[in-house]
Design a binder for these strands. Structure first.
Lengths: 256, 256
DNA sequence: GTGTCGCCTGACGCGGCGTGAGGGTCAAGT
DNA sequence: ACTTGACCCTCACGCCGCGTCAGGCGACAC
């Protein structure tokens, strides 16, 4: 097409044609990714056709999400392109999965915020402190859209402040039962500990049908998740483990 | 319920329980997002229960993808949580879409690279692995379950390495024809350009019955879809447009 | 001359920490 | 009383991919 005379473009012209900024071209020059082959006597950067082709490659690889360092490697060693593309693909797919999870997490957080209307967040705070809220959110994230979760949502939808006060009282009684058992030196397999576990399970029934099997899962979470562990261990060190063992013992007793 | 003794934790303990690093806690302190209410006489950070509940909030919001600044706002003004969550949701959804496009772009790039350095069907399987399924699904999304697509699937099903090599050679010849026409300064409506277009259409026949009308549609995609645009513009800037015009001219010529 | 462009070279800023350096503190063992 | 080793502290630079000034020259039209 046009003659292959020394047709060169300045930064601004190149920037406009390739849809990048001047600063970007400066940057590519700085890091040696794309240095223009020529300079005017005034020091202006002058890009030749070769430079433009290289830039085109850079732009494409960048659109594929590669880091500038990787782009440099790809330009120097094009034979490894397939491998890099493959790695990039899996990396992006992983990020994609994480983002999908994030959306569902946000959805659940939204539903929770919406359904908690009867009792305002401030009231909840009064009752439980800020921690409770998160405990619930965490539960939702873990269990996904299970029946239990839907049941819980349904049942608590119209809860009034008075209802939540009762929940709080019940929760306190449960915690107290565990604390008493621990302080009395009773092992998790003792009657009192198991009774506390059963009390705990019963209080769960308020939210959803909590089978012994589900109760076991909940118990395991108390030790595997640092936040729940913290919740219990703040009452008494080692309490999270104690509660878990008691719940398992209680489940054994009823299922055996 | 629990005694309100001054139970406090050090950074390390807090970090472990909440699954964050010590540096992160230092950072939160630095920016004033979460400063521990107490210090030991040696200057150790001591986190009270209140601090921990606040940290719980921070951690959860961070997992929902909020920036630290937004987290701070959410903690100060919890009443705006729903609105923020909705905004965050749409933002994440947009990013999700972009990432999906990115994956298909990488797939296209991979296909190109593969045809440059042909791989056996086994390598194909290995290369695409689990992702191959996705690539197919996404192709369906883009092109729908058209006859053309099915035909292409059918015909390339048993392609050997040699077959792909020929495809590549044919593709090269077509590209070369367009490149020659461009470099010779011929307009897209010229004989040589239209001949190149016809050669292109002929090579498409390998995959599916490509009518002139379909060829037009394909041509339009070359300029409307950035991925295809990139493919051609990498060879010569402006080539995607050139190819499209040549294909339309060629279709005009044959359709009258 | 005198605008008004565009170009140049620094150099700082951002977000969210990672990763040291260089030094105190604490609990346990000897 | 001393050492050990794990923990804590405060700076402070590094990262990535540029955006965004600041201060000054070159090019071209009027």
């Amino acid at each position: 097409m046009t003659e292959t005379t020394g047709v060169t473009l300045t930064v601004g012209q190149v920037a406009e044609r390739f849809g990048v900024t001047v600063r970007t071209l400066h940057h590519y020059d700085e890091i040696g990714l794309l240095s223009p082959s020529e300079r005017s006597n005034a020091g202006y950067r002058l890009y030749t056709e070769e430079d433009l082709t290289r830039l085109q490659h850079v732009v494409v690889y960048r659109r594929l999400g590669f880091a500038l360092e990787d782009v440099a490697m790809l330009l120097e060693h094009p034979e490894g392109a397939v491998e890099h593309l493959r790695r990039q693909r899996t990396a992006v797919l992983q990020r994609l999965g994480e983002m999908r999870d994030l959306v569902t997490a946000i959805d659940r957080a939204l539903e929770r915020e919406m359904s908690n209307q009867p009792a305002t967040p401030d009231e909840m705070k009064e009752l439980f402190g800020e921690g409770f809220h998160d405990a619930q959110a965490e539960a939702e994230e873990r269990w996904g859209e299970t029946d239990a979760w839907h049941q819980s949502q349904e049942r608590t939808k119209g809860y009034t402040k008075a209802d939540w006060e009762e929940v709080k009282a019940e929760s306190d009684r449960t915690h107290q039962a565990f604390t008493d058992a621990m302080d009395a030196g009773e092992p998790p397999t003792s009657e009192v500990a198991m009774d506390a576990a059963e009390l705990h399970r019963a209080s769960m029934q308020r939210f959803y049908d909590c089978s012994y099997e589900m109760h076991r899962g909940l118990a395991d979470m108390y030790v595997s998740d640092p936040r729940f562990t913290a919740t219990y261990d703040e009452i008494r060190p080692g309490m999270a483990h104690y509660v878990r063992d008691a719940i398992h013992a209680n489940a054994d007793r009823h299922q055996g």
